[in-house]
Simulated scan of single mutants.
Amino acid sequence: MTPVPMRLLRAGLAALAAIVMAACGGGDGTEAESPIATDDTTGHWIIDQDYGGYRLIYDCTDRTALHYRYTLQADNGSVARPASFTLDTMLPAGCLQQTSTASYESVHAGYDRGHLVMSNHMDYDATYIRRANFMSNIVPQVSSFNRGIWLDAETVAECYRDIAPVQVYGGVVYSDPSNDYFLSSHGIRTPEYLWKALITTDPATGAQKAIAWLIPNTAGLGPLDGYIVSIAELERRLGADQVRISASAALKAMKPQASWPLPAGCSLD
């Protein structure tokens, strides 16, 4: 796997250290919202925003989510995904967001409006699934990435939620301005990598287990197994302040040889 450049730790990532976050991820809407913080070195305005079913660490200066977290319970939802994307109505006054809900494809071919928090993971609540279609939860994703390997990772979380609750964490990495096709049209850069980490309980042993992936936002990728990393490796590459997962060293060190096999009969319904 191509190493992530050190410059990915540029403006915005250092600000995460200033935010007080819950250790295990949101998802039930009961957490108190963390204070708004400004990074003294970059001047970026970073907030920890509660959307009920999930939380985003959001950069109000760069108009992008940096990190997301939520907990999946057993799937009992069937609310339909909204037909359209909308601007975020929950961001505080003065917090910048994307300037358009139009498709990225209309600006530069080969890109989707890609979700960070999967819509289907919020289908147990009509309000939460609508918020998942806010543009604050959307970043430019290469179409084959979004509909292929990223969907594969989302499916792992979807399938294991019916076995035991799954803590879902993830984020984006910005490191190369050469593909920032949507700054003029939408005000957002294009991430070079997306990552996702899952923590759940193995019913056979009662012990926790973890898996994570760091995936380049490009076309022509191989199977999901080729992008497995440990949470500890994510922390080394991206910085613990970006990953922000509270877990034991043993759990963070876990690096399965293959992605968790999908249980028989699992689907995204």
Results as ranks from 00 to 15, higher is better:
Gln97Cys: 11
Gln97Val: 11
Ala102Asn: 04
Tyr104Ala: 12
Glu105Leu: 13
Glu105Cys: 12
Glu105Gln: 15
Ser106Cys: 03
Ser106Val: 03
Val107Pro: 08
His108Gln: 08
Ala109Cys: 09
Ala109Asp: 13
Ala109Pro: 09
Ala109Gln: 15
Tyr111Asp: 02
Asp112Phe: 00
Asp112Trp: 00
Arg113Val: 01
Arg113Lys: 14
Leu116Trp: 04
His121Asn: 13
Asp123Asn: 15
Asp123Thr: 10
Tyr124Val: 05
Tyr124Asp: 14
Asp125Tyr: 03
Ala126Pro: 10
Thr127Ala: 14
Tyr128Lys: 05
Tyr128Arg: 07
Ile129Phe: 00
Ile129Tyr: 00
Ile129Glu: 05
Arg130Gln: 12
Arg130Cys: 13
Ala132Asp: 05
Asn133Leu: 08
Phe134Pro: 01
Phe134Met: 00
Met135Leu: 07
Ser136Phe: 05
Asn137Leu: 01
Ser144Tyr: 04
Phe145Gln: 04
Phe145Pro: 00
Phe145Tyr: 13
Phe145Cys: 05
Arg147Ser: 08
Arg147Tyr: 03
Arg147Trp: 00
Gly148Lys: 12
Ile149Tyr: 03
Ala153Thr: 04
Ala153Val: 04
Ala153Tyr: 06
Glu154Pro: 11
Thr155Gly: 07
Val156Asp: 05
Val156Cys: 01
Val156Phe: 07
Cys159Glu: 11
Asp162Lys: 10
Ala164Cys: 11
Pro165Arg: 04
